[in-house]
């Protein structure tokens, strides 16, 4: 149930041609599952997340099918998607700190938003206040302007607002990236609490920070250069990754308390390819230590172990 994505392909239009940001993404998320979406900058994870809610003017739907709770989401049609937004699929945006109208009180904005979506205000406002309390914000936040709140407070307000109507799918786009570690922990825990309390059914948490995902995600999907690299339960991804990219990613993580002099950080040499004219075959082959002739042909994203899928010839070998 919940979310089924099949072959989703979304390009960015540019003057020099299409940037193939998300190419043939296929995966499933079960009810109650928190899936982490990880990868380097520019790998397409944010695009994937955004395309499930609202494609902005530069994004162009090319192919693919998205199903939520058994119903097809018309992601290619901005108008037809509207009834689903906020109510069934919602997003905590990457720019949450500036997501609130600076000249409007938070409560006023929320009520106007709800009214414009023809949602009766009675129970919802009380619920809003209740949830604000849960995330540790005082009720009078509704009377304040965004400028009066700190970054963390604004982040939590946006989280509560986005999930207010109990959507089936909540996409959290880089919600912890701009915060300090202690706030990161609080926010991550909140995300889990939202799922546990049933405010949201399933969640996609997009981040480049694997350590956060390890803490809160059930499964992790790793993307590289617009393509899916590996999807597996969080434990498996961290301790027994199948894809060479995932392996190198894990080993590049610094360990707290260990000095660089004692244990050198091993990065991944090279750079991700340009998505304007992506190379044929496996997009990682130029940086992969395990690359061989077969890599010239694109490896399919298939199951390599129960609950674990990867796109690598060596993994399926």
């Amino acid at each position: 149930m919940s979310l089924k994505v099949d072959g989703l392909t979304v390009y960015y239009q540019s003057l020099r041609g299409d940037v193939k940001a998300v190419d043939g993404a296929t995966f499933e998320i079960a009810d109650g599952e928190i899936m982490g979406l990880a990868g380097e900058s520019g790998c397409g994870k944010s695009t994937l997340g955004k395309s499930l809610v609202r494609m902005d003017a530069r994004m162009r739907y090319v192919d693919g099918r998205v199903e939520l709770d058994g119903k097809e989401l018309p992601v290619w049609d901005d108008r037809k998607m509207n009834p689903y937004r906020f109510k069934h699929v919602s997003i905590i945006p990457q720019y949450a700190l500036s997501a609130l109208n600076p000249t409007r009180k938070i409560g006023t904005m929320a009520t106007e938003l709800l009214a414009s979506r023809d949602i009766p205000l009675n129970g919802v406002v009380d619920e809003f206040k209740r949830r604000l309390k849960i995330v540790g914000l005082p009720e009078d936040v509704l009377e304040r302007f965004p400028i009066e709140l700190s970054g963390g407070m604004k982040q939590r307000v946006v989280m509560v607002l986005s999930s207010l109507l109990d959507p089936s799918l909540l996409i959290a786009d880089e919600v912890t990236s701009a915060l300090d570690v202690s706030t990161q922990r609080a926010v991550s825990e909140l995300l889990v609490e939202f799922r546990d309390r049933g405010f949201v059914k399933s969640m996609i948490v997009i981040t480049h920070d694997l350590s956060v995902l390890y803490q809160i995600a059930d499964t992790i999907l790793v993307m590289y250069a617009g393509k899916l690299a590996e999807k597996a339960p969080a434990e498996t991804v961290v301790h027994a990754p199948a894809h060479p990219y995932t392996r190198m990613l894990i080993s590049s993580l610094p360990e707290v308390g260990v000095r660089y002099a004692e244990k050198r950080l091993i990065g991944i040499p090279g750079r991700p390819p340009s998505l304007l004219e992506p190379p044929t075959g496996c997009r990682f082959k130029t940086r992969c230590p395990l690359a061989f002739e077969k890599c010239a042909e694109e490896p399919p994203f298939v199951e390599v172990a129960p609950g674990q899928a990867a796109a690598c010839w060596k993994a399926t070998a």
């Binding site: 809610v53 609202r54 902005d56 509207n82 009834p83 689903y84 937004r85 906020f86 109510k87 919602s90 997003i91 945006p93 720019y95 949450a96 500036s98 997501a99 609130l100 109208n101 600076p102 938003l113 414009s116 979506r117 946006v158 607002l161 986005s162």
Partner: peptide
């Protein structure tokens, strides 16, 4: 950003 956010939440 706030315009984008509102649109993402389906505001008319």
């Amino acid at each position: 950003d706030y315009s984008n956010y509102l649109a993402s939440l389906g505001a008319p």
